[in-house]
């Protein structure tokens, strides 16, 4: 009986899977995105039906990994348009010559934040420290006033960061420290942080969901985003009105990230690609992405959802020169590995 059930199940599944696995059409616009890309499905469907363009969204890992895949396959590009290359990566993309300039309306329109290179800015956000409000209230410890404070014995074993070699917020935070303090002082700080028990996690999810004290770990300070407290309210179970976490904007510990959309050199379907780029800067998308990707809109004058009032914007932040990052970034990461892990 069970055997029969199994064979029937297996046959049905395989047969229907084979039917469902029809090849993608040639008319498809191939859009390469990073793993955090997220827009409401009806919005994408509406774009498809209005423009007659079939979208093939391809996820290529985190932003750095995605760019590397693009560079590796430049002889035979795997996409026509790419979303998610940011201010830290743009110089690397330009050096590898994988992007093509776009000159349409969205490229000439001003954006809230600038983004150099052949990329149209779509959104921006900040990588900074988050703290667990309940933990600090309970312990009575004052919040740190500077990165230097964190290296003091009072703050021993309290911070978790992501490995900059495997995580984009981890990389952004490293860039912020180097831009904010200069490389000599920055790596000295990292060495002191190592002595003071900084913990290194592989990626944002590991840090936030296994190390951060709010989620059962032991560290009340974590490298995250300025929008995370707002997301905590938005996704809260008991419908919070005040976020359980807060932002810490310390000098040398805040990095502004601006990401955008660009044409892939050697890609096809230029007209469709242009429509998609304009679509990404259109008002509905700009409004929606603020609570799906948790970034701020780059298009001026777009309404900010109410929940984002919990996402304070820092006055002071780092925005390291992209060409410097392109030439030195890898060195900084290996130096960081030497100082913090070896």
């Amino acid at each position: 009986m069970l055997r029969k059930t199994f064979s029937i199940w297996a046959t049905t599944v395989v047969a229907s899977a084979a039917l469902a696995a029809t090849p993608v059409s040639a008319q498809e616009l191939r859009v390469l995105v990073h793993n955090s890309f997220s827009l409401p499905k009806p919005m994408l469907a509406q774009f498809e039906s209005e423009s007659g363009i079939k979208l093939g969204i391809i996820k290529g890992g985190d932003a750095g990994e995605m760019l590397n895949k693009l560079i590796l396959t430049r002889a035979q590009p795997i996409a026509d348009v790419v979303f998610g290359i940011d201010n830290a990566l743009v110089a690397k993309a330009e050096a590898a010559n994988v992007l093509e300039a776009y000159t349409g309306a969205a490229a000439t329109r001003a954006s809230v934040v600038p983004l150099k290179g052949p990329i149209v800015a779509v959104d921006y956000g900040y990588v900074n420290l988050n703290y667990d409000k309940a933990w600090f209230a309970k312990s009575g410890l004052a919040l740190p006033k500077s990165l230097d404070d964190l290296a003091q014995p009072a703050y021993r074993d309290l911070l978790v960061v992501q490995n900059p070699a495997t995580s984009s917020p981890g990389y952004a935070f490293l860039l912020a420290t180097v831009a904010g303090m200069g490389d000599a002082a920055a790596f000295d700080w990292w060495a002191r942080m190592r002595a003071n028990g900084v913990k290194v996690a592989k990626g944002w999810s590991e840090a936030y969901y296994t190390e951060f004290s709010r989620n059962g770990g032991s560290r009340p300070l974590v490298v995250s985003y300025a929008s995370s407290p707002a997301a905590e309210v938005f996704y809260s179970k008991e419908k919070l009105t005040v976020p359980p976490t807060g932002n810490l904007f310390l000098k040398g510990g805040v990095m502004r990230q601006v990401e955008g959309v660009a044409l892939v050199r050697g890609g096809q379907n230029r007209e469709a690609a242009a429509r998609f780029i304009e679509f990404m800067r259109s008002r509905p998308v700009q409004e929606a992405l603020q609570t799906t990707m948790w970034m701020f809109a780059a298009e001026p004058g777009v309404a900010r959802p109410d929940v984002l009032r919990h996402a304070s914007e820092p006055v002071q932040f780092e925005d390291p020169a992209s060409d410097l990052v392109a030439s030195k970034g890898a060195d900084w990461v290996s130096r960081w590995t030497r100082v913090v892990l070896k």
Partner: peptide
């Protein structure tokens, strides 16, 4: 688990 929040 790529987003913050108890609901997620």
């Amino acid at each position: 688990l790529g987003r913050p929040g108890a609901g997620n």
